[in-house]
């Protein structure tokens, strides 16, 4: 055990865990983004609210969510500790910094970019995660009905609902009512504030720059490097660093401007 501790506490071992947690968080980002895209379904927020409920209720998801919390905390704090220790490895700094000539600025500023992300994650969690788990979010009722063998959902109140009931009289085979916390409404209300949209957009730039270096760097730290694969890993990393944060940033922007 002490040998294992020594190995994973060495400079190389620490980087392996940073790489593994980093890549795990990349997978998390994809799942998170796919969930968020449900905000654009025209179903009175049923899909998004249903998804939010599922993400907090399902026991298997719960285990994964604890792994995610651990990955975020480990990656963030270990990263900060390593950055501070690395600074101590050069107590007297150079008078002239030539870093621009030999390396990409994102690779030299992962600590700063990561700190921006950590601050963002805290704000983001307070606004949505905390609000959903511990806040007093109003709930919304949905009716799920079977019409001609097809399951449909809609909000269980309002004019649209009444009109639909009148039109469908006699056609509905069966129905149930469902009640979810209305995170959908909360998201739309939050992204109505320009400063929050701006904060989100800036943070997604930080995610993009962090991933620009981080994705391929994780593979290098794990020793996954081969002339036949390096170019692909690099390109996939760059694509990931652009597409995923862009997807996240578009959500508040679309909500704000529509």
């Amino acid at each position: 055990m002490s040998n294992l501790f020594k190995i994973f506490n060495s400079s190389t071992g620490q980087k392996v865990i940073m790489a593994l947690t980093g890549l795990f968080l990349c997978v998390f980002l994809v799942v998170h983004l796919m969930g968020n895209l449900q905000l654009f379904k025209h179903d009175d927020g049923f899909a998004f609210n249903h998804y939010s409920q599922f993400m907090t209720g399902n026991p298997l998801i719960k285990i994964v969510s604890y792994i995610t919390y651990f990955a975020i905390l480990y990656h963030a704090f270990k990263g900060l500790i390593m950055t501070m220790n690395n600074r101590k490895a050069r107590p007297v700094k150079y008078q002239v910094d030539g870093g621009w000539a030999n390396s990409h600025w994102t690779s030299r500023n992962m600590g700063i970019l990561g700190t921006v992300l950590l601050v963002f994650i805290v704000i983001h969690m307070i606004d949505f995660w905390y609000e959903f788990k511990f806040g007093n979010l109003p709930t919304k009722k949905y009716i799920q009905y079977d019409i001609g063998g097809e399951l449909k959902n809609m909000e269980f109140s309002g004019e649209k609902f009444q009109a639909r009931v009148k039109a469908s009289l006699g056609q509905i085979n069966d129905f149930t009512t469902l009640e979810y916390k209305d995170l959908y409404k909360e998201v739309y209300a939050t992204f109505d504030k320009w400063w929050y949209v701006l904060l989100y957009t800036i943070s997604m730039f930080a995610v993009a720059f962090h991933l620009w270096h981080g994705f391929k760097s994780a593979f290098q730290s794990l020793g996954i490097s081969h002339p036949a694969w390096n170019k692909t890993i690099k390109l996939v990393g760059y694509g990931f660093a652009v597409i995923v944060p862009l997807g996240f940033a578009l959500i508040p922007l679309i909500i704000f401007f529509s």
Binding site: S11, N86, R90, N102, K216
Partner: peptide, 22 residues
């Protein structure tokens, strides 16, 4: 060698590539 490298007080690798470039 890695444990000696750590004991000497060198920093960890951030894969910036500055080393190979220089």
């Amino acid at each position: 060698m890695v444990h000696q490298m750590d004991a000497e007080g060198f920093g960890t690798c951030s894969n910036t590539g500055a080393c190979a470039a220089e």
